[in-house]
């Protein structure tokens, strides 16, 4: 659904490679990346590049999987057969994104089980946005519109990211996200044009999801020390603040079009910049959610761990059966 740098940068220094890399290979690598070549799994790459990518792609994959929970919360209560089918298909897409992203990360020398273990133990992060609750049906609209809208802003540039498997996964993911964003906005449009109760739901959803959506782009550029290296390596193609501004500029008129109020009194069109000025983001809240203090952080992780632990016997059975078949095939 989305990715950005989620480490609590106030606490940690930027990643430093543990051992110096061979300068000749490093220079050749940097030159390829600068020339917009794709780096492929078998190519040489600096350790820090590999680690940054594993972290970023696995965070992205985890976000897709944890992101199934807040929306999954409404599949069984969707208000019509069409809405139910569309939401189920959408959440299934998110699961599919998780699957290709785990596969892309595996090409860098990690395994899905290792990544899942890192998520469950709290070492790996996922997008802060999914630690907020989905209270009403309108929250499903807001997630599609704002959260998937933000994801598209983040991910479109990643279709040209330097690591080939990640860039290719992103091409497919972006197509699906754009459908998700439209279905979310369409839900909001319907509610905003509906009864007073429906309009209240829609406005409440925008009020609650607006600021967390802006936080999805990560800390401001002056507090994002890993960004410079990630930009040079073309793991990232635009800065957090640039993408955040682009998102605001696109989204505000969409809110106006359906007569919903963006909950920011400081929001104002700036003729000179050709962009909206906007209010202060509560970064204390962002860092608290990154630390696992989000409203539903414990529930989300418990749900994932429970599904994983309760499914252990199924995975063991599948492996035991595959082993038996191999033994039988060998005996024949």
């Amino acid at each position: 659904m989305y990715t950005t740098e989620l480490d609590d940068n106030k606490k940690k220094p930027a990643t430093v490679p543990s051992a110096p890399e061979d300068p000749v290979r490093l220079a050749a690598f940097e030159a390829r990346v600068a020339a917009d070549d794709f780096i492929e799994p078998k190519d040489w790459m600096p350790e820090a590049y590999r680690k940054t990518l594993i972290r970023q792609i696995s965070q992205h994959a985890h976000s897709e999987i944890v992101g199934m929970l807040p929306e999954g919360n409404w599949i069984t209560r969707a208000p019509s057969l069409r809405r139910k089918a569309v939401l189920l298909a959408k959440v299934q897409d998110e699961g599919g994104h998780g699957l290709y992203l785990y596969a892309a990360a595996e090409t860098l020398g990690t395994s899905r089980d290792e990544m899942i273990e890192a998520l469950h133990s709290g070492r790996a992060k996922y997008s802060t946005i999914f630690n907020y609750p989905t209270l009403t049906w309108a929250d499903i609209g807001a997630i599609g519109w704002l959260v998937d809208g933000a994801a598209i802003m983040n991910q479109v540039p990643l279709q040209r990211t330097s690591y080939g498997p990640y860039a290719r996964a992103m091409v497919r993911i972006c197509k699906e996200e754009s459908f998700h964003q439209r279905q979310g906005y369409e839900i909001m449009m319907t509610l905003a044009a509906g009864t007073a109760e429906q309009k209240r739901m829609a406005q409440s959803a925008l009020d609650r999801w607006w600021w967390p959506s802006l936080m999805m782009f990560g800390p401001p550029d002056d507090n994002s020390p890993n960004s410079a290296q990630s930009m040079r390596w073309r793991i990232k193609r635009e800065t957090n603040d640039q993408i955040r501004q682009k998102f605001i500029d696109v989204t505000v008129p969409q809110a106006e079009a359906i007569d919903l109020q963006v909950p920011d009194p400081a929001l104002k069109w700036n003729e000179t910049r050709g962009s909206y000025d906007f209010g202060e983001i509560d970064w204390e809240e962002f860092y608290a959610v990154v630390r696992g203090e989000g409203p539903l952080a414990k529930e989300r992780m418990n749900a994932r761990v429970k599904a994983w632990e309760e499914g252990a016997w199924v995975r063991e059975a599948a492996m035991a059966h595959a082993d038996k078949r191999r033994v039988r095939a060998a005996a024949e």
Partner: peptide
Amino acid sequence: LSEWCGHAPMLEIDL
């Protein structure tokens, strides 16, 4: 079946 979404024993089964 939709009750399983997000809670299945593995991702492939969820899908």
